[in-house]
């Protein structure tokens, strides 16, 4: 009988120890482990190529070629409405894209015979930002073919409105006096394009 009781107590002790061990394990697991969940965040910046001229309305430049009062003198070219025009642009490109350029061309109407219209963009000014704001290309003579006036435009924006971007300077010149004729008012449109090359 005594032997039986000893065996019982021994088993009881083993079971109790087991319970304590299991409870301890659960307790430890509950305090130590951290478990993760992940939320994926993504957004895209699209390609952007926007250009405009400021001011956006009433941006006509008006020249006059008048005869002189003195015989033997050259006709006078005067800019009647002297406006400050600015090119603004915003550009975002894919990696490894070629830098963009601004091209100018006459798209409707035409210059009277014997005259040339030059345009030049200033160096960049304004409140914009970017790793490559455009570089001016110098003075060009406008024609019906596109010609580059600003180059090396990458990911940037010039700032919006007058005083931001590149100021445009127009110069009307008499190229060939022998072709000058008297004409009525002549209108033509100069278009600027932001292009991928």
């Amino acid at each position: 009988m005594k032997v039986y009781l000893k065996i019982y107590n021994y088993k009881q002790m083993r079971i109790s120890s087991y319970i304590i061990f299991v409870a301890f394990c659960f307790l430890c697991l509950g305090k130590v482990q951290g478990q993760n969940a992940t939320a994926n965040i993504r957004f895209s910046i699209p390609e952007v190529a926007l250009i405009d001229i400021e001011p956006g309305v009433d941006n006509t430049v008006h020249f006059s070629v008048s005869s002189t009062t003195e015989s033997g003198e050259a006709p006078e070219v005067t800019e009647i409405s002297s406006k400050s025009l600015w090119i603004n642009y915003t550009s975002a490109q894919l990696d490894n894209s070629d830098a963009r350029s601004v091209y100018a061309e006459i798209t409707s109407g035409g210059l009277p015979n014997g005259l040339e219209l030059e345009v030049e963009a200033s160096v960049y000014k304004g409140i914009g930002k970017g790793n490559m704001l455009g570089t001016k290309e110098g003075k060009i003579v406008l024609s019906q073919s596109p010609q580059r006036i600003i180059s090396n435009i990458k990911n940037c924006f010039t700032g919006d409105g007058e005083g931001n971007g590149h100021e445009l300077t127009y110069t009307l010149k008499i190229a060939d006096y022998s072709e000058i004729e008297s004409t009525d008012d002549t209108y033509f449109v100069v278009m600027y394009t932001l292009s991928d090359n």
Binding site: G34, Q35, N36, A37, T38, A39, N40, I41, R42, F43, S44, I45, P46, E47, V48, T90, S91, A92, Q93, L94, D95, K129, G130, N131, K154, N155, C156, F157
Partner: peptide, 16 residues
């Protein structure tokens, strides 16, 4: 900003 160029941006937020 456009200054970053045209591309996709992605990251993970981890909750533990």
């Amino acid at each position: 900003s456009v200054v970053l160029g045209a591309k996709d941006f992605e990251t993970d937020v981890v909750f533990t």
